[in-house]
Design a protein around this nucleic acid. Structure first.
Lengths: 297, 297
DNA sequence: CCGTTGAATGCAACCGGTTACTTAATAGAA
DNA sequence: TTCTATTAAGTAACCGGTTGCATTCAACGG
């Protein structure tokens, strides 16, 4: 009683390590990722960090590529649960996660185990719908500007794009799939190269892997006097801030990133604290029609 | 010997907490911040996380606003050193940081103690130079689109703006300082309001608190048929990705954010591991002239 | 005045490592 | 063979909390 008062007087702060060691829990979540760059990540991390904080958890961000370090952090009892995105976590690690029964949420692949959840976006359906929308505007020759080769979302989007074409009886043309790599300059130069190859017979629609590559493609179009949206209609993904303010403003699909973060943390915490089972959640995006798409004259 | 081999066989991972408790160091750095949103933060965090990783440190990101939580993490021996930006760290905390002698780096204010470093940008000088550049282009009536009211950089930039005006004999006009709040919509509406108030006599230069507010201002100008850069020349800050690709591409000042992160971590680690003293580092930015500025006809 | 009760305090063990020290085992030299 | 030098293995204490249990103390009713 007196001791506590005295401690407060001297503004004593307890050593958390002793507490964590004894109790066997750290009240920390680990976020394992390759990179934190780009609008997607900061929205996600912001959401994860705030939700974790509101539930009494702190956040550890691990950007390491060194595999031993990953293992030390994963299984060194330094976090109570882990969130995994685009990280250097191998199949073997995933098995160990399952074996150690450390609660985990995957954001870039389907769940694999009992104590594992996955919270992903419905990239396939979004791309399918966006492509169908372009077709409904009278577009028939549609480019897909792909992202990183092994990226889950990029591949899902391509699958949706191809399936939509087929559904409406348009044959898939591999030469219309360009490697934009999610980057402005690459998308710009790929598009410029394409235009130069087919000066007479350009496309009438572009489905870009993300907004920034859509902007790159539009730059190439503008340079060649091709009009957006009349000649070519363009759709991006992500709804980054600039999509709204760019001219022409960009039709795109917005994913509920903030909600992904909130659900991720809530699901993870309920696996930790209430021993809940893992769940697989697929979140639907929302297409936002702006000025970069219009019906073909 | 055999034991170690057997341990490896069973892919045993040591409990880091015991190690940390005994050794008195955690090899973790703490990053205390209000928010992680925006291009500045992800560039900074990416740089900090990678540099920390390369030096054998992990990164803890604390976005909490609860003050007891901040104290627990700050002084609970859960990190070996702290990085502070725009956080809810009070003056009292800063004193405690100094008293506990926990190494710290401030990114949003000058250093105050012996074991404390500060790594900041030279926002004053950058704004001074940018304003002087506008004046050298023949601009005399220059708006400053301010950021958040209490933001260190925004205020420093305003100081540089005012001093540059005075140096060249242009009186500072308070009505030319608009609250853009670092946001596109706010900057747009403030600029539109301003144009409507002075339909005959618009400005001929804009120094925006950041790029995104510059883009907002340019939207208002364009809507009113005012030409950039001929009628009004516009300069932003930060050189976000879109500044290069916007039309007209934006003249802006790029801060070495990545370098700030690297220096921050190196300085922090040398205070931790080599008992180095705190330093005060001011980094210079670089103005990048693009198409949003031109000499006045 | 004594016995019971409740609160407050003191004490020891434990969490899982590290470290220093002791003891055992092996190898090499006389 | 025997003694010493070197290495390996075993032991106990410690880091700073938490937890359970034993002890002390004060308060109160009988």
């Amino acid at each position: 009683m007196k001791v506590i008062a005295a401690a407060k007087e001297l503004n004593y702060v307890p050593n958390l390590l002793g507490k964590q060691l004894k109790s066997g829990q750290t009240n920390m979540l680990g976020f394992f990722t390759n990179s934190v760059s780009g609008p997607y990540f900061y929205t996600l991390i912001e959401s994860i960090a705030r939700t974790a904080d509101s539930l009494g958890y702190g956040l550890n961000v691990f950007v390491t590529k060194r595999h031993d370090t990953i293992q030390n952090y994963l299984f060194g009892n330094v976090v109570d649960g882990v969130i995994v995105f685009e990280s250097r976590i191998t199949e073997n690690d995933a098995k160990m996660i399952e074996h150690h029964r450390i609660p985990a949420v995957f954001l870039d692949r389907p769940k694999t185990g009992d104590k594992i959840s996955s919270i992903t976006f419905n990239s396939y359906k979004e791309a399918f719908d966006a492509t169908a929308y372009l077709i409904s505007l009278g577009r028939r020759k549609i480019v897909y500007l792909a992202g990183y080769p092994d990226n889950f979302d990029s591949n899902e989007r391509q699958r949706g794009y191809e399936d939509a074409l087929q559904k409406y009886g348009i044959p898939v043309n591999r030469s219309l799939i360009l490697p934009g790599l999610f980057e402005e300059p690459t998308s710009y130069s790929e598009m410029r190269r394409f235009i130069n190859l087919h000066p007479e017979d350009v496309v009438d629609g572009i489905l870009a892997g993300n907004d920034i590559s859509a902007i790159g493609a539009m730059r190439a179009l503008k340079e060649n006097g091709i009009n957006v949206p009349q000649d070519v209609s363009v759709i991006g993904f992500d709804d980054v801030e600039i999509a709204r303010y760019f001219q022409p403003s960009l039709t795109t699909t917005r994913n509920p990133i903030g909600r992904q973060g909130v659900i991720t943390v809530k699901q993870l915490v309920s696996m930790i604290a209430e021993d809940a089972k893992g769940q697989m959640v697929v979140l639907d995006g929302q297409m936002i029609v702006r000025d970069s798409t219009a019906i073909k004259q």
